[in-house]
Design a protein around this nucleic acid. Structure first.
Lengths: 161, 161
DNA sequence: TCAATATCATTAACATGTTAAATATATTGC
DNA sequence: GCAATATATTTAACATGTTAATGATATTGA
């Protein structure tokens, strides 16, 4: 069986340890991270969809649940959402009354965002379902491996930040 | 120093190993994956921007460079792009003459996509810059740790797929 | 005090993510 | 051969990602 001829490397001269072409996507860190994330999120998305919740909205609500009232910049940074995206999300989350917004009296530029009791109830509804999915992954993949992966991810993040 | 009061857990009764609330975002696999990816991509984005290339476009071109001509479905799957996104990207990449498109004679439903010589030249231009950034990360983080992380990512992906 | 500068949030414009529906072509089963 | 079904791609509609520019408020320094 013959594999296709790579358009970027003449297969007749390419060694197996070839470093001339672009890194094989299979061993590319950004692509591997994206692939892993997609595989994992595929397990969570149907559950979130049943609660009419996007992953971004779920992140925002969880962060607010974890840290309490935050200004928009801190919320965006911790929820891994860009400012303009957050501005739009805030509008819809205000409409559905899952968050509240007020302006900082001491600094008129800042908006302070917090979750409503309705959002707290929603989080408490979603959390056990989310935990069940997470536990299933941990069970299949191994808790120690999950911990090891989390440690490496934290480390590589710190290295690049 | 007093930490804020978590809206979801009464801090006066919460144990340190509390498992009632949502998983702390710090130890959430999907969030940790996203955070790591963002930290890493921040190193690559400026370089790609200088070549007027988005990360998605860069993925698509690399996949085509690696595998040769592919139909849209296979390309989308391997480049980790959804079908509708790929449809739009194909339009712009055709305009900039970085890809070519033809329909499969044996199966009229399929579109076959390939890169042009112009794209091959672009890839060869970007590749050394990309490799330099990647090598810098490997140097700071450690090659063994990168390999270990890639192995774990591959494993967790397989577990969830 | 006030002009210059910096910071926070929003808007604008366009690309991509996401799901559902539509379109076109193939395949299957009768 | 043809109707029913399945598959590949596209379109539609809306959410989010991304960068640059704008508006509003704070801070700084002369």
């Amino acid at each position: 069986m013959t594999l296709h001829t790579d358009p970027l490397t003449d297969s007749t001269s390419a060694k197996s340890g070839d470093a001339s072409g672009p890194r094989q996507t299979r061993r590319s860190l950004p692509i591997a991270l994206l692939r892993a994330r997609e595989a994992i999120m595929a397990k969570f998305r149907p559950m979130l969809a049943r609660h009419d919740m996007s992953e971004q909205q779920w992140r925002v609500l969880r962060i607010l649940g974890e840290y309490g009232e935050l200004d928009a910049s801190q919320l965006a940074e911790r929820a891994l959402v860009l400012g303009p995206s957050l501005t739009r999300m805030i509008k819809t989350l205000l409409k559905t009354k899952l968050i509240a917004k007020r302006s900082d009296k001491a600094d008129g530029r800042r908006s302070l965002i917090s979750i409503t009791p309705k959002a707290i109830a929603l989080i408490q509804e979603i959390t056990p379902e989310s935990a069940a999915i997470y536990n299933d992954i941990e069970k299949k993949f191994g808790i120690e491996q999950v911990e090891q992966l989390l440690d490496l991810l934290e480390a590589v993040t710190k290295t690049c930040d």
